[in-house]
Design a protein around this nucleic acid. Structure first.
Length: 1231
RNA sequence: GGGCUUGUAGCUCAGGUGGUUAGAGCGCUACACUGAUAAUGUAGAGGUCCCUGGUUCGAGUCCAGGCAGGCCCA
């Protein structure tokens, strides 16, 4: 048997398993890379997943996308290395460990050592690696799992350090601050995780103040002083004697009055409407004008006040009179300057940048839900404040402490610094546990409010209940407070980031311009600092006073610095030494040798018992039998001489040096924290305790995966930048950004040329999948059940990867049935008949293209078009369209038309030239389809390819043809042979399909089954080309719909009834508003008018008294009816069916019925396709007539050597059809 | 709250630059076909194209505002 045959239904899961085993056995993935050696490369970066959880179905989606384009590029002949990777650091892992250990961050270093804690993290992070690897294999994602980069390995961290140093040397790394939740009582910052603990947000009653900020009169603020008088009351009349213009104040509300002395700006919403209102201060009763949001006027001013007289207002009156003077948009107010609330004149300190402070700025967070619609900005005590101020160039109010170090007006214990005038030293909240019940107790907020009332700068003071976060440990209120942080100055390269982003091909484009582009436009500096334990440590050491610092870029440099520090006696011992020695004890390998600094030679091994280290000394046993045990001071060891001696099983000895850096060196905390360096001036330097953002780790992978820039420059250069990356859209500001930012800063280049951001995988109802809701889909079970191909195909074909996918297994079933089932059937069909005929396709001596039938040339033309189309879609990173095009070709064109119409060719008779051509055509289609689908459905494609080509392999290898490749994934994708594309042929086949469909529809209406032959169909045609086109496919149509002829009707026949439809597109352009009338007139055209238009090429009509000349292009003429005929239409195409039945047609119909029943009988009797039979029917006149005319046909169809009648038949079957009931005897012909 | 994104038949999705009668597959119903048969053909039912307003002779398509879902950020 040349072509393997399979039972229906095919077990797709098994196909996956079998192919996977074969790939492994034959190293196909490795070959897919190695056979492309020397070819152009296609660089792909694997975004490292974290293996601390089980993989989900969405990972199958993301990895399918990655896999598709890597496989496709391989098919194009490129070499595609795919180095895997693991993301191993970060908060999720720490939290998981803490949960498992039942501890909190506070316990680290107390209940558990940092060392042990990090060890737990290291063990936890790879816990699910086996599952991940398993899924990777089973789903057919080809990536190198044997040599992945792992972000916690010392080489990887060292690369990160080297990159940080490069940034540091470029001046892009600096220490600043961010506003973070801070607990003065605990003296520590709080993570958002800690802030989300239950019970941290509580209702508290605070003193709140609506403060008045006095506007400085200048060019910018002049409109506020202009006397617009919306309420049409002259100013003088308003204030009576106080006719001089009252001051203008901007109102801003705060629930934390203690931040008011730190105010440096006011934020407005640029689209929010604001009012200028004339009124009086409720405490000093001075006439004032105030600015606030229109929407909030009702909150501060009563209806009564709007009517109240200004002249009659006197101190003590409850109702404040008020009038609206003018309206503004927030944008109009931006830039206005105002006076400092607590200024130097009142004893408050000056600060740097003061000239840029006290301005109105834009704030996108401003709302009119509460307050005044204007937000008081104190950049040191609010994250929004800080950001808005930074964007607008407004400085923070910082004062110098005793050492000259700048800081906020509140110290880290929660008190005002001494410089704060009358309030200096006051607690901003009750952090000192002061008794609040005392009559004279006043909070700082209250004191400030009282002061402001007196100064006339408070417009409203009241107690207000709101929720406020509290420290979960101390129960004291949290402050938003500036904490030290290290930053990468991404804003310095902002323009370049934007510029280079425009050269990246984003899929979908909107993510690049929108989500990512906007993010770049509003870029702030990258906050690198994390106060955590399990991550890449920041390699910066500083002196206590911060005046001297060093950024370490390599372990070599670090060792050199350590040596200096040891020499300067800042440290007694290089902490890595212990690490190395520990490693040598743990790894049982043989023995070591070294010299001490005096040159004495030692040979032997370190002893771990009773304890490895006693201070800095270690026990060492001489290798001589019964040798002495020394106690050695490790600081005396000359580590450059340290070697280990390994004896293998053959007794061969291997000697290797042990670098101090690796082989046990751990660059994590706490080890790096134990390193103290010495500054040039001789001061000790301590490491900044921060870790760096894990996103830096992943963004550094283009460099760190090769241990670049420490080594492997060539590797790096060859693989930078990436041609393609793909991850979820949630990575836009994560990995996509960090890759881009680092590439621009370090290499002035993009990091990737093409990027796909895929969407989420939701459950079938559109809800997010989660373990908690129990709607998560198990990827292993899915692949097991449906096979990897149907799963992948469904995900790709159903929705474009960047749209969210509603995952429904019913969809996989459908794909499996409709696409894979059809393709499998088509293959089985081919295999069945090819095997019967002993046919084996060859690459040589094939039927010349010109000699192929219309049908064959058509499907091959379609195939070439498909190759073009699919390549185009893959090239433009649109796998969905590629999948859909392949699917439509296989189901609609190949199976449902070409194979269906070719069935007789396959099963009839000997291996003729036409049959051979049919095999060759189908064979070519199937092989090409296997290639085209290979990126998406790699297993099934392999299955199909091998089944189709294994019989050709030997010759292919011998003659070195494309099919020499043992795997479809090692082939080169066929190029479309455009010479074989025949658009005209494709067009007429479509006509044949549509005419057939219409004819079927007519048969159905007339209840004339297809088995009943009919004489003819009539097709009206208006032009010769259509006529010629249809004539060429007449045979196909006749065979498909079982009629004898296709006849054409043209105008000359005189029986066509035409109708006309306005061509609105053309008419609209020509007549515009008149179109309606013209269109109506066209629809009323008479037969004569249509005829005139056709013959003369124009038609004069009158519409609403105006003359128009219609051209043929203005209308679409079609035939809709043939009087006396049953017709069906599809757009411009019309078909009429001649339903006249002659005796001969009837007889042929009977003959066909007979054939059909006999075939069924054959099949029911279990006969094989090739068995011959003898048939005897019971006599019946009508049957005999039919057999007389069509006996030869019947015998041939049912492969009967004889077809006879007998007067009486018993014991056989009875054929029933139409009004017949025929006893029959069927025997297998033995000879 | 901001940015981005999605909304078309029961379900999943198509619908360049606006053109009047909005399509496909699945599912459903009926009929047919039967040497691919757990396949296939034909027909039918099924739509306020999320809503409101605007531009236009004409809007699923363009504009504005809203609603709902999603993601990211605050």
């Amino acid at each position: 048997m040349n072509y393997p045959e399979f039972k229906q239904p095919l077990n797709y899961g098994q196909v996956g398993t079998d192919i996977l085993a074969w790939w492994k056995q034959n190293g196909i993935f490795e070959k897919s890379v190695s056979t492309r050696e020397g070819q152009p490369t296609f660089v792909f970066y694997e975004g490292p997943p974290s293996a601390n959880g089980a993989p989900g179905i969405h990972h199958v989606m993301a990895r399918t996308v990655k896999d598709i384009f890597c496989r496709y590029q391989t098919l194009l002949g490129k070499q595609v290395h795919r180095k895997g990777g693991w993301d191993t650091h970060g908060l999720p892992i720490e939290l998981q460990v803490e949960k498992e250990l039942g501890i909190t961050k506070e316990d680290i270093g107390k209940k558990i050592s940092i060392e042990d804690y990090n060890q737990r993290c290291r063990e936890t992070v790879m816990r699910f690696k086996a599952q991940w690897d398993d899924l990777t294999e089973k789903m057919g994602y080809w990536v190198d799992l044997d040599d992945p980069y792992i972000t916690f390995e010392p080489e990887y961290i060292e690369s990160c350090w080297a990159l940080l140093k490069k940034l540091y040397d470029k001046g892009l790394l600096y220490k600043g601050y961010t506003i973070q939740p801070y607990s003065p009582a605990a003296g520590t910052g709080l993570s958002s995780h800690e802030l989300n603990q239950p019970g941290t947000y509580r209702d508290v009653k605070d003193t709140t103040v609506v403060a008045q900020f006095k506007v400085k009169r200048d060019e910018k603020s002049e409109p506020l002083f202009g006397n617009v008088q919306l309420d049409e009351v002259p100013l003088a009349a308003l204030y009576g004697d106080n006719a001089s213009e009252p001051d203008v104040y901007i109102l801003a509300w705060t629930t934390t009055p203690w931040t008011l002395p730190a105010n440096t700006g006011l934020a407005v919403g640029k689209n929010i409407p604001y009012l200028l209102v004339s009124t009086f201060n409720p405490y000093t009763y001075a006439p004032i004008r105030v600015v606030l949001a229109e929407a909030l006027v009702g909150k501060y001013f009563s209806v009564k006040g709007k009517e109240a007289s200004f002249e009659d207002f006197k101190p003590g009156d409850k109702v404040l009179p008020w009038r609206i003077e003018n309206t503004f948009k927030g944008a109009d107010l931006v830039g206005i300057r105002y006076e400092r609330l607590f200024g130097q004149n009142k004893g408050y300190p000056a600060f740097e940048g003061e000239e840029n402070a006290f301005r109105v700025i834009n704030g996108d967070f401003v709302t009119t839900e509460d307050g005044t619609g204007i937000v008081h900005i104190s950049p040191t005590f609010g994250a929004d404040d800080f950001r808005a101020a930074q964007l607008a160039g407004v400085p923070a109010l910082l004062v110098a402490d005793d050492e000259g170090k700048l800081g906020p007006i509140v110290d880290r214990t929660g008190r005002y610094v001494a410089q704060m005038g009358e309030f200096g030293g006051r607690w901003v909240k009750n952090y000192d546990g002061h008794d609040e019940s005392g009559a004279d107790y006043k909070t700082l907020d209250e004191s400030i409010a009282i002061r402001m009332k007196g100064d006339g700068t408070a417009f409203k003071v009241e107690k207000y209940e709101h929720t406020y976060p509290h420290c979960w440990r101390t129960d004291k209120p949290v402050l938003y407070y500036p904490l030290d942080s290290w930053f990468i100055k991404t804003t310095a390269v902002k323009d370049r980031l934007i510029e280079l982003n425009k050269t990246i091909n984003w899929q979908p484009a909107s993510t690049g311009t929108g989500r990512f582009g906007n993010w770049l436009e509003n870029l702030v500096d990258w906050n690198l600092s994390r106060s955590r334990y399990w991550g890449t440590p920041l390699p910066i050491w500083r002196t206590q006073d911060g005046t001297e610092e060093i950024c370490i870029g390599s372990i070599e440099q670090l060792n050199a610095e350590i040596d200096k520090a040891v020499a300067a006696e800042v440290m007694t011992l290089n902490p890595f030494v212990k690490n190395v020695i520990q490693g040598l004890v743990v790894n049982d390998f043989g023995w070591v040798s070294f010299k001490d600094k005096q040159g004495n030679v030692y040979e032997g091994s370190f002893l771990s018992k009773p304890e490895l280290f006693n201070g800095n000394t270690v026990n060492f046993k001489d290798r001589k039998l019964g040798g002495d045990i020394y106690s050695i001071d490790v600081s005396s060891i000359d580590f450059s001489t340290l070697k280990r001696h390994i004896r293998n099983s053959d007794g061969e000895e291997k000697v290797e040096s042990i670098p101090l850096t690796f082989g046990g060196a751990d660059l994590h905390r706490p080890y790096v924290d134990d390193i103290f360096l010495v500054s040039p001036s001789g001061q000790p330097m301590y490491r900044e305790t921060d870790l760096i953002d894990v996103w830096f780790d992943s963004g550094a992978m283009p460099y760190a995966q090769w241990h670049y820039p420490i080594e492997n420059e060539g590797q790096f250069q060859k693989n930078f930048p990436a041609d393609f990356i793909a991850e979820g859209v949630d990575q836009t500001r994560g990995w996509f950004f960090t890759l881009h930012a680092l590439a621009v800063m370090l290499e002035d280049s993009v990091a990737y040329k093409n990027v796909m951001a895929n969407g989420l995988v939701l459950d079938k109802n559109g809800n997010k999948m989660s373990k908690r809701l129990g709607n998560a889909v198990d990827p292993f079970a899915t692949i097991q059940q449906f096979g990897p191909d149907a799963t992948r195909w469904y995900m790709i074909a159903n929705a474009q990867p960047w749209d969210n996918l509603k995952f429904d297994v019913a969809g996989i079933t459908e794909v499996q049935r409709r696409f894979f089932g059809t393709l499998f059937n088509t293959y089985s069909f081919y295999a069945l008949y090819a095997n019967l005929d002993g046919f084996q396709a060859r690459e040589f001596d094939r039927t010349p293209h010109a000699e192929l039938s219309e049908l064959d040339r058509w499907i091959l033309s379609k195939l070439q078009s498909l190759i073009l189309e699919v390549r185009g879609h893959y090239d433009s990173y649109d796998p969905t369209k590629a999948a859909r095009a392949i699917q439509d070709f296989v189901t609609d064109q190949l199976s449902n038309w070409h194979v269906r119409l070719s069935r007789r060719r396959f099963w009839k008779g000997e291996l003729t030239a036409d049959k051979r051509a049919a095999y060759e055509t189908l064979q070519e289609c199937l092989v090409v389809v296997s290639q085209l689908m290979a990126p998406i459905a790699p297993f099934f494609a392999e299955w199909l390819y091998q089944n189709m080509t294994n019989g050709m392999r030997a010759e292919a290898i011998e003659r070195n043809t494309p099919l020499a490749a043992e795997s479809v994934h090692l082939t080169l994708l066929v190029e479309a042979d455009e010479a074989r594309i025949d658009k005209s042929l494709e067009e007429r086949m479509e006509l044949a399909q549509r005419i057939s469909s219409l004819t079927h529809s007519l048969r159905k209406k007339s209840v004339l089954k297809v088995r009943q032959p009919l004489q003819r169909i009539l097709v009206p045609v208006f032009n010769d080309s259509t006529r010629a086109q249809v004539a060429l496919v007449e045979d196909l149509i006749c065979a498909e719909v079982n009629v004898k002829h296709v006849e054409f009707l043209d105008d000359a026949s005189g029986v066509l009834v035409k109708s006309v439809k306005p061509n609105f597109k053309r008419l609209g352009q020509q007549y515009g508003a008149k179109l309606k009338a013209v269109g109506a007139r066209i629809q009323q055209m008479s037969a004569e008018e249509i005829s005139t238009l056709e013959k003369t090429g124009q038609l004069a009509v009158e519409i609403d008294g105006e003359a128009y000349t219609l051209a043929p292009d203005d209308v679409e003429i079609r035939t809709q009816d043939l009087p006396g005929w049953l017709v069906a239409t599809d757009g411009p195409l019309t078909v009429a069916l001649d339903v006249t039945l002659t005796d001969e047609l009837r007889q042929e119909g009977v003959a066909r019925e007979l054939v059909n029943r006999l075939q069924n009988l054959r099949k029911d009797s279990g006969l094989e396709v090739q068995d011959k039979i003898r048939v005897t029917l019971q006599q019946q006149p009508e049957l005999e007539a039919a057999v007389q005319s069509f006996g030869g046909y019947i015998r041939e169809e049912v492969q009967a050597l004889s077809l006879d009648f007998a007067p009486e038949i018993s014991g056989g079957a009875v054929l029933e059809f139409d009004e017949f009931s025929v006893p029959v005897l069927l025997n297998v012909a033995t000879a």
